[in-house]
Simulated assay, not measured.
Amino acid sequence: MTSKIIFDTDPGIDDAMAILYAHGHPNIDLTAITTVYGNATIDNATRNACYLNERFNIGATIAKGAEGPLERDPVGPTVIVHGEEGMGTVLAPQDQAVDIDARPAYQYICERVRAEPGEITLVAVGPLTNLALALKHDPEITKLVKQVVIMGAAFGGDGRRGNVSPVAEANIHDDPHAADQVFTADWPVAIVGLDVTHQTFFSDTYLDELRESAGEAGEFIWQVSRYYLDFYSRKLGLQGCHVHDPSAVAYAANPEWFTTRLGPVRVVTDGPAAGMTIQKTEPGRFHHDGWSDYREQQVCVEVDSDAILDDYRRVIIGLSG
């Protein structure tokens, strides 16, 4: 069954990898891309999205979103990981046509969801500011969205608790207030966090083989990954990269590849632990309990990594045909 998705993203090297995966996937109808700050500034993220949309004939509507978080001071673009403009050494032309919808991303999301009730899955792989603004603008969308899939957070699986602080993942840390609002809203959320994205790995050999077999898309993924893999090599001592954003696409397309755990989720919004995500899995209500009044959400804890690697290869090769 095909899932119609709005892809909320901050392109971003792995975002670009995920956009091509969603574009080519037979189980996904990538209808729109909404942009948000994060890996890049909002202007660079939007230009990158337009560049990908045009270069690979994706045909998605693009709407420009938030330029900064709801309350906290901005962290700034993740230049060390994604480069000055977001896609490493691959630069969208400065004169790239920025062909976008006139509505801000949160309004576009709300109106699309109302126009197609029960059909739209929101897949968000950046800070969750656009989704929080959509909830504020039209709280009733919680009854109209099919599902929300989030790449973000970390819950301690195999010690995976954070990548920008000892306890926080980057997307959640960038806007913890927005994340807490999204996770506690009364809509179905699946969280694809570091607990599973670290279980799947694009080795340098895998990416080399993709370059040889997948035409223009494979060449692009190889080129855009150079900066990313340099970071992984220098900072983490790894010859390849974890599969973050494409894993959220994989969940939207094939959720049966993931094992999930049910329970309400809260986010620490301030202080040194800002961005920490905590899921309540114990039954019953505690004396001091900020979880039990909220909807239980799905947190991914295991994944069939081989299935994702095989599927990603097959889909990207398919774009060359």
Results as ranks from 00 to 15, higher is better:
Thr61His: 12
Gly215His: 10
Trp291Ile: 11
Val224Tyr: 05
Gln223Pro: 00
Asp186Trp: 00
Ala274Asp: 01
Glu54Asn: 09
Ile109Asp: 03
Ala168His: 06
Ala217Val: 06
Ala97Gly: 09
Ile6Trp: 06
Gly159Asn: 07
Ile28Ala: 11
Asp175Asn: 05
Ile141Ser: 04
Val36Ile: 15
Gln96Arg: 13
Asp43Phe: 08
Asp95Leu: 11
Ile42Trp: 01
Leu210Met: 03
Asp306Tyr: 07
Phe202Lys: 13
Phe231Lys: 10
Gly38Asn: 03
Asp138Gln: 14
Ala217Asp: 00
Glu212Ala: 13
Ala214Ser: 12
Thr61Lys: 00
Pro104Lys: 02
Pro264Tyr: 01
Asp138Trp: 06
Gly118Leu: 07
Asp73Gly: 10
Asn44Thr: 06
Leu91Lys: 15
Leu128Lys: 07
Asp99Gln: 13
Gly86Phe: 02
Ala97Asp: 12
Asp175Val: 04
Ile5Leu: 08
Gly215Arg: 12
Gly240Gln: 09
Gly218Lys: 10
Gly156Trp: 03
Trp187Gln: 05
Pro255Asp: 09
Asn39Cys: 08
Thr34Arg: 02
Gly290Glu: 10
Arg313Val: 00
Leu262Tyr: 04
Asp245Arg: 15
Leu194Ala: 15
Gly193Asn: 12
Met1Thr: 14
Ala154Ser: 15
Thr269Phe: 02
Arg266Met: 04
Ala115Arg: 08
Arg295Ser: 12
His177Pro: 04
Val90Trp: 03
His173Ser: 00
Arg285Gly: 05
Ala168Ile: 04
Asp270Lys: 06
Asn27Ala: 15
Leu236Phe: 06
Gln96Lys: 13
Asn57Gly: 12
Ile6Ser: 00
Asp43Trp: 08
His23Ile: 05
Ala248Ile: 01
Glu111Trp: 07
Arg261Met: 11
Asn57Ser: 15
Leu128Ser: 03
Thr281Asn: 12
Pro139Glu: 02
Phe220His: 01
Thr269Val: 02
Thr200Asn: 07
Thr197Ile: 07
Gln279Glu: 03
Gly157Ala: 10
Leu128His: 03
Val243Phe: 01
Tyr227Thr: 13
Tyr232Cys: 09
Val123Asp: 02
Arg112Met: 10
His288Asn: 13
Thr31Phe: 02
Pro188Tyr: 04
Leu194Met: 11
Val267Gln: 02
Val36Trp: 10
Lys143Met: 09
Arg114Phe: 03
His287Trp: 08
Pro69Val: 09
Ile33Phe: 09
